[in-house]
Simulated assay, not measured.
Amino acid sequence: MTRPERFRRFLDYFTTAFPEPKTELAYRNPYELIVAVVLSAQCTDKRVNQVMPALLEQFPTAAELGVATADDIFPFIRSVSYPNNKAKHLAGLGKLLLEEFEGEVPSTIEELQRLPGVGRKTANVVVSVIYNQPAMAVDTHVFRVSHRLGLVPKTATTPLAVERALVKYTPQEVIPKAHHWLILHGRYICVARTPKCSICPLTDFCAYYAKVVAPGLAPAAGKPSAKSQL
């Protein structure tokens, strides 16, 4: 199967079975999303959602966050991964939002990456989710699933290489959704240690399934839809 054919199969399934995917981070505006995404680095969305209400009560906008110190922020995020570094990042992020962006979250990847704690992945998430731009954020789930499905070549060994390979064959208007499809599929079905191939609807073109799970065998027909798992 060619790579364009794999993409067509991937897109056909998800546009039908899961047409409106959304981030699992809870947010109400761009400020809340960027704070949540910074906190979500190497941390679960569930944990981030647990700490966000108290954090936002204390720092509801960039105006409050921009005058806070890392020591002010730390007690509210102590249960997330790397809280010391993230407290410093959020303090710097708030300050820069106030000083250079009038308290508003910028809408370009280049401007976003100037903010402390915001790398390319975080910037891509923000412009994709908030501004519906065709940006593909590559986290560990996207990286793993895209390789297992055979959507990207083995030579794509960095997040940027995977990002470029994915957007090459994904229609621009679908890229923001495809990002969520890959994340959610990796979070609930194509998990890292023991992928749930028995309920996966994509085994008919999955390179991992063909090579590791059922070498030489035709994929089983009639698998249940995985929509309820996402």
Rank of each mutant, 00 (worst) to 15 (best):
P30N: 03
P30E: 02
P30Q: 03
Y31V: 08
Y31S: 02
E32G: 09
E32H: 14
L33Y: 06
L33H: 01
L33M: 10
L33T: 04
I34P: 00
V37G: 10
L39G: 01
S40Y: 03
S40H: 03
A41F: 07
A41S: 15
Q42T: 12
Q42S: 14
Q42N: 14
Q42V: 11
C43S: 07
C43H: 06
C43N: 00
T44H: 05
D45I: 04
R47V: 09
R47K: 05
N49E: 08
Q50G: 13
P53K: 13
A54K: 14
A54R: 12
L55D: 08
L56K: 12
L56I: 02
L56F: 14
E57Q: 10
Q58V: 06
Q58G: 05
P60G: 04
A62M: 09
A62V: 01
A63P: 02
A63C: 07
L65P: 02
L65D: 07
L65V: 01
L65N: 06
G66P: 04
G66W: 05
V67Q: 13
A68W: 00
T69A: 12
A70D: 06
I73V: 12
F74T: 02
P75E: 11
P75D: 11
F76A: 01
F76W: 11
F76S: 02
I77T: 03
R78Y: 15
V80M: 08
V80S: 02
S81P: 08
Y82A: 15
Y82W: 13
P83F: 12
N84H: 13
N85G: 12
K86L: 10
K86R: 04
K86S: 02
A87K: 05
A91D: 05
A91Y: 04
G94Y: 00
G94M: 09
G94I: 08
G94N: 02
K95L: 13
K95C: 09
L96K: 09
L96M: 15
L96N: 03
E99N: 03
E100A: 14
E100F: 06
F101S: 06
F101W: 07
F101R: 03
F101K: 09
G103N: 09
E104P: 07
E104I: 10
V105S: 04
V105R: 06
I109H: 11
E111Y: 04
E111H: 08
L112S: 04
L112C: 00
L112R: 01
Q113C: 15
R114K: 12
L115R: 02
G117M: 01
G119S: 10
R120Y: 02
K121A: 14
K121G: 08
T122C: 01
A123W: 00
N124H: 11
V126N: 05
S128W: 13
S128R: 01
V129T: 09
V129E: 07
I130R: 08
I130K: 02
I130M: 15
N132K: 15
Q133C: 05
Q133I: 00
P134A: 10
A137M: 14
A137P: 08
V138D: 03
D139R: 14
D139A: 11
T140D: 13
T140A: 15
H141Y: 08
F143L: 14
F143S: 15
F143V: 13
F143R: 11
R144E: 09
V145N: 12
S146R: 07
H147S: 11
H147R: 14
H147L: 13
